[in-house]
Design a protein around this nucleic acid. Structure first.
Lengths: 353, 353
DNA sequence: TTGTAAGCGTTATCAT
DNA sequence: ATGATAACGCTTACAA
């Protein structure tokens, strides 16, 4: 592989001059400039990012730490970040934490030795990111936190408007005539899960509906959790006529549980998801969902980082991306032939099965 | 950030000694060793991967080049590679090419300047990887090619047994009684698409069925392609009673087209996919598919790389992963009340719509 | 405008 | 067994 020394020799100039034309760090006379550039082209020379980074105390890599690329919501986030980073000359080192904060810590510690230009992090459960990020910022490396936030996080953030999204979805169910609502939230130690639950509660409250506590369940953000909690909800009397799921994976589980209970969606129970994953339109029935753009989440984060890299020293930015409702077949008005009474009215039809 | 110099000073030894205890590159007396290790722990020292890589002419990063992380088959591949790499001390730099060979080339050229320990590549369409990889191998960097192969590729490979998988799926359809088969393959310039088509043809031939050429369609590997080609197939007379799709995304499109044509799956048309994506079990009806493990594909590739890194100089390895059939609701025997005649027998029921 | 040389944090060679 | 030192490929004062 050709090095700068080779270029210097071929072009008949010094090392410094080559560097100057490559970085525009000093004026170089046109004929000399041309000779250098010709040598670069003829050899296919590419500067060693390693040597450059070591010297500049900053590489062109951006570290990206996420829980699990296999989770269907994250690839779009990664892609958004990569596109934005790539088009500005930065590359991505990808790390999965499996929501394990010790694995996150290990990544954080090692990543630093690559002198990355910045970090984009979807914090793991019980993340200690706040402490760690301090040592990054001390050396001027930006860290932006996305999707969900660790305790006491003071830095840049990009998140979806989870509360409003959940609020709008719940409101929609209520407007359809549902009064017997239920929800299965994600793990409540995650900020996004909490915000979504808050949105649900807000809509319920505004509509002056009474929701007994059994109708609010907490789950992991996956299908199995959705199945388990939905089975529970479907056995309640009166049975909920609409379930708002904390994300689409939970909603998938709800759909399965409804089918397994011999019920129909949306005729017996409406289901609303969150994320609007690709699979939402291929489920049976297709899933109504609160749509958020993972791609935009990632690209916005990369953008903030680029601003920081270019010297922005202002206060932390907190960007909140709006969501929209994607209405599909999994929601419908409650069955009209069943008079809905207050939850306190007790049984009004036998439990299924 | 603490450097080796700091450790040396704290432990009261020379730089070389610190390096020796850290790398075990020479015997160091226990008390000295202990002093160094203590200094490392107390400072939280981590060696600069940049400096180390520059000196060793090899970093602990593995470059991974894929078409698009957003394609639902690839995240598992990346995860498999990452897990295997990570547990051996290697990190992943992820690059998306969008199947654009010039973007692939750019990544290939720049990645080299990071002195990666190896490369895992899912080649883009019309990839020139074969040429590029040569320059990597010259400096001893392994390149393993997975999923599909570029022209004249001579290096290590990990692929699924595409032909056999497609063969088994088609055979299964035939055993159910289908004789009016059709297929929508992926782009035939991709080796995996070609192999799957070959498997389909092999099964057809063995069963001595006649398939007119209109029943074999080529598509892109996505849903829209599946819709378009399926619409075409469903208008043929006689209409195929079973469609083998080149992958699950195409199959998704086929499912949609069947529904839009007012037909039912599997009653009117059976559908078989390939890949067994997660979404295969949530479609309506759930999708039968040839299951291949993306995770295994990635981890096997990383393994080969690790062997090469550890000095294996033997001939190129060609690992072929077996597939299995995942049978779900989208396939059934052909409708019994319709006597099946030879394709050459002409119309035997009016075209739909 | 161009050249010289120090130094980034390691590893590896060679003394001691 | 340990220490001194050159070198990896580049950037950046500073000198010319």
């Amino acid at each position: 592989m050709a090095t700068m020394k080779d270029i210097a020799k071929i072009a008949g100039v010094s090392l410094g001059t080559v560097s100057h034309v490559l970085n525009g760090s000093a004026g170089v006379r046109e004929p000399v400039r041309r000779r250098v550039l010709d040598a670069v082209r003829s050899t296919g020379y590419q500067p060693s990012q390693l040597a450059r980074g070591l010297r500049r105390v900053q590489t062109n890599v951006i570290g990206m730490i996420i829980p699990d690329i296999t989770n269907p919501f994250f690839p779009a986030v990664v892609r958004g970040a990569e596109d934005q980073a790539f088009s500005h000359g930065y590359r991505l080192i990808l790390c999965n934490t499996d929501n394990d904060h010790s694995k996150e810590l290990a990544h954080l510690n090692e990543l630093r030795t690559y002198l990355p230009a910045g970090l984009i992090v979807i914090p793991s459960t019980f993340s200690d990111l706040t402490t760690q990020a301090k040592s990054y910022r001390e050396v001027g490396t930006g860290v932006v936190c996305i999707d969900r936030l660790p305790k006491d996080w003071g830095g840049d953030t990009v998140t979806a408007n989870n509360q409003k999204g959940a609020y709008k979805a719940t409101q929609h169910l209520i407007q359809l005539g549902h009064t017997q609502l239920a929800t299965i939230s994600g793990p409540l130690h995650l900020t996004n899960a909490r915000e979504r639950l808050n949105g649900f509660k807000q809509a319920v409250k505004e509509a002056r509906l009474q929701i007994a506590s059994e109708y609010i369940q907490e789950s992991t953000f996956d299908k199995q959790g959705g199945v388990t909690k939905a089975e529970l909800l479907l056995r309640l009397i009166p049975r909920p006529t609409a379930i708002f799921a904390g994300n689409d994976m939970i909603a998938l589980g709800v759909l399965a549980a409804i089918r397994d209970a011999g019920l129909r969606c949306p005729e017996d129970v409406s289901v609303f998801g969150f994320d609007d994953l690709e699979l939402a339109e291929t489920t049976n029935p297709s899933l109504s969902s609160v749509s958020q753009s993972g791609y935009h989440l990632g690209s916005t984060a990369a953008n903030i980082l680029l601003e920081r890299i270019q010297g922005y020293m202002g206060p932390a930015k907190h960007i909140v991306l709006e969501t929209s409702l994607k209405l599909r077949d999994s929601v419908a008005p409650p069955a009209p032939h069943l008079p809905i009474r207050r939850a306190t009215a007790g049984k009004h039809r036998p439990a299924p099965g």
